[in-house]
Design a binder for these strands. Structure first.
Length: 767
DNA sequence: AAAAAAT
């Protein structure tokens, strides 16, 4: 009852916010009554002039000091880092799930037999063992052919919706893009109208492959997928007119990257250094990507040369394009291969309206729905003018609509694990021909308990085994669980460590302030108002702005969903244009909120952990930890929402009694990133560290300590350069601050706890 | 203790 009223109230509020902001009218900001911030925290960057700009050179210095001993190439001859999992290759081989490579066929076929109800008896492509020994290549044509139980015939217009123009790929120029063939032209007009509108994505629920050529039934198998299709101006505008971040990548040329593994391909310096084909190059140009980011320089040639990849890099480093570009390029080069036949066969067996199952050539798994959407949006860009049709499936949205979208054709699928499993069990997706598998934010997916679903998708279904498919894993950290997953999913892979870009490096100014719970709201208002100190925030015209706008977004993190609602209400009542995102809001509301925030209509977003990782929102100038998280990894990810590639950012965290559990880790982070450390924090950390003897008597932290007490078994410091590895977090995940001090650029990858204790005696760099 | 994700 109460809840209902509250919800309704919030909905009304939001409407009013929309009204206020959409009219472009001035937002009534609360005036500060007392100069709380200025008086209590004269050192806060918002109070001092020239926000964070002094820091601009710090990063360069840090990078310059890295001394990677790199000869410029991944396989450098200098001191080489050998990741633990690569040192014990024999062991890992023995432990991999029993004889995949030999046992696979029988297993798969057996599996098929048992599931004919939704495999539709089409168990004829089951015998896939030897057929992809040059995985990613054309694989010697259509191996299912001649294999028995189906006969290939040209199938005309068999349910692919090309009623008017059966020829499909060769549709007349003016028809090639503005519809998916004749029928959709007639029936889907409202669909397209929605897409064109600024809020279209929320109404369409994120579907539709962006007008890429549809999966048309075509009797000729030798269509050349590498040739671009006819341009479509409207679609082009829709895809590419969006926010170009104007990121200055040049500044990041020196971000350290370390590649290890057998025969590591040389990295590139320009997109032109590797042949990705006409379509990709055209779309790179349209996307206004001038130069590859560090992770792209290394990942693109590695993926292009068909190697498996384990990359430790954060979102915001250009990671998404780093795998999308080479994967799509490879698909364009190789064409659909057997999958085309499989789909045709499927159609044939199920009749004209039975396009039940799609066989994507490539699968990207992501932890959150928003991230999946974000990757999908990128994929649409790079699939422009190609025959590849990207799709996205995730929970919280109408599954029927997603199924219908899949049935229009799906070559590249972006998915959250739960919904994908659902789709597979409904027989809508077959991974039999999925030659490219990408796990994005793998650490996060494991944190969220997706491992069973992931293994279900990768190991217990019909996906080609490792070695045949190409697998790429991306993760911000490299804890034990990820190492095991890499061992199980990857074959002879290249390990890529990309220096931190936007997390704890010096382009983010981190401030920790002591704020009691009761003062938090008041303090927050002061912070928000401080953002509009004349001369500090400029709008896009270079003029001083009197309100945060789209160039100056503020992201406020709270710990609970309830807290997010409450704080949003409060801010609204104080006259701020704000919105919120958390897991209890509907998917539609979440996307809407994100859009309002991104566009600057609501320049303040109150969020829970759902928004902490992966989301790439440019122009987040300020991250405020209204509630600090209890896990330091979470902290790192949160503040990483600001200071995205090439930009400077500010992170302010409210600290009080309740945050005792993060004291030491927070201190380490601040020191590592060469941030100013409040003296009280140092004292607290010291106190915490020596708390072992008087555990339980420390009243001061009675609310915060306890569960994490095991952490403080570690007393190492960062002074050695490899600080904190090993002994900390015995048994837990997170807190993986390896590579502390001296190697500043490589934080955050390793959590050595309990994984082959022998490693701890070995220098991380193999010495 | 909380959050995320399939219904």
């Amino acid at each position: 009852m109460l809840y209902g009223i509250k919800t309704r109230l919030r909905r009304v509020d939001r409407k009013r916010v929309d009204k206020i902001t959409q009219g472009g009218q001035k937002i009534p900001y609360r005036q500060t009554k007392k100069p709380f911030l200025r008086e209590t925290h004269p050192q806060h960057p918002l109070v001092m002039s020239h926000v964070a700009v002094e820091n601009a050179h710090g990063l360069d210095q840090q990078i310059a000091a890295l001394d990677l001993k790199s000869d410029g190439h991944g396989g450098g001859t200098g001191r080489r880092y050998i990741p633990p999992h690569l040192r014990n290759k024999e062991a890992s081989k023995n432990e991999s799930p029993g004889g995949w490579d030999v046992g696979r066929n029988g297993f798969v076929n057996g599996y098929h037999d048992g599931r004919d109800n939704y495999m539709n008896g089409s168990n004829t492509f089951g015998n896939r063992g030897p057929m992809r020994n040059d995985r990613g290549g054309r694989g010697g044509g259509y191996r299912g052919r001649g294999n028995g139980s189906y006969v290939i015939q040209p199938v005309q217009n068999a349910g692919f919706g090309c009623d008017k123009d059966g020829s499909g790929w060769n549709a007349p120029k003016d028809n090639a893009y503005n519809s998916f063939g004749g029928r959709s032209d007639r029936n889907k007009s409202s669909f397209y109208n929605d897409r064109g509108a600024s809020r279209g994505r929320y109404e369409r629920g994120g579907f539709c492959g962006g007008g890429n050529s549809r999966w048309v039934d075509d009797s000729r198998d030798d269509e050349d997928w590498s040739k671009p299709l006819t341009p479509n101006e409207r679609l082009e505008h829709e895809l590419f007119s969006g926010s170009n971040t104007g990121i200055n990548f040049e500044k990041y040329d020196d971000i350290p990257v370390e590649a290890t593994g057998h025969n590591c391909p040389q990295h590139i310096e320009s997109f032109h250094d590797v042949d990705m084909g006409e379509i990709i190059m055209g779309n790179i140009t349209l996307s206004r990507y001038s130069r590859p980011t560090p992770v792209q320089k290394y990942a693109i040639p590695i993926i292009k040369s068909k190697r498996d990849l384990m990359a430790c890099a954060q979102t915001g480093s250009g990671k998404t394009a780093a795998f999308l570009l080479p994967v799509l390029s490879q698909i364009y080069t190789d064409g659909p291969g057997e999958a085309l036949q499989a789909a045709k066969n499927n159609v044939q067996e199920n009749g004209r309206y039975g396009r039940r199952k799609q066989y994507p050539l490539s699968l990207v798994l992501a932890p959150t729905r928003e991230l999946a959407l974000q990757i999908y949006d990128e994929a649409r860009k790079f699939a422009y003018r190609s025959r590849v049709r990207p799709c996205v499936v995730y929970g919280g949205a109408d599954i029927g609509q997603q199924i219908r979208d899949l049935e229009r054709g799906c070559h590249l699928l972006v998915a959250t694990p739960g919904r994908l499993v659902d789709m597979m069990e409904r027989g809508k997706i077959g991974l039999d021909y999925c030659n490219y598998l990408v796990l994005d934010e793998a650490d996060r997916m494991l944190d969220m308990g997706f491992e069973p679903q992931i293994r279900r998708i990768v190991e217990q279904d019909t996906m080609p085994p490792k070695g045949l498919r190409q697998t790429m894993m991306f993760s911000a950290t490299f804890p034990k669980e990820i190492q095991i997953l890499a061992r199980d999913f990857l074959e002879d892979y290249i390990f890529l460590a990309v220096g931190r870009v936007g997390s704890t490096s010096e382009n983010i100014t981190q401030k920790v302030v002591w704020v009691e719970e009761s003062d938090k709201r008041s303090f927050l208002l002061d912070l928000l108002n401080a953002t509009v100190i004349p001369g500090e925030v400029q709008d896009s015209n270079g003029e001083n702005s009197d309100k945060p706008g789209k160039d100056s977004l503020t992201l406020v993190f709270v710990e609970t969903k309830k807290g997010a609602d409450a704080l949003e209400d409060f801010l609204y009542r104080e006259g701020y244009a704000c919105t919120s995102i958390h897991g209890d809001r509907s998917q539609r509301d979440r996307e809407e909120a994100l859009h309002q925030f991104r566009s600057g209509r609501c320049p303040i977003l109150v969020a829970t952990a759902v928004a902490a990782r992966g989301l790439d929102i440019c122009n987040v100038k300020h991250v405020i930890n209204f509630d600090l998280p209890s896990d330091i990894e979470e902290y790192v990810h949160r503040i990483g929402r600001t200071g995205r590639v090439g930009n400077l950012g500010l992170a302010t965290s409210f600290f009080n009694d309740k945050n005792g559990n993060i004291t030491k880790d927070l201190l380490d982070i601040l020191v590592e990133a060469k941030q100013e450390v409040p003296s009280w924090l140092e004292s607290l950390a010291y106190e915490h560290q020596h708390k072992g003897s008087n555990r339980g008597r420390s009243k001061r932290f009675s609310g915060g300590f306890g569960a994490r007490d095991y952490r403080q078994t570690n007393s190492s410091t960062t002074s050695g350069g490899f600080g904190n590895r090993g002994s900390r977090n015995a048994g837990g995940h997170g807190g993986s601050r390896g590579f502390g001090g001296a190697k500043g650029g490589f934080g955050n990858f390793y959590n050595n706890d309990g994984y082959g204790g022998n490693y701890s005696q070995v220098d991380w760099w193999g010495n």
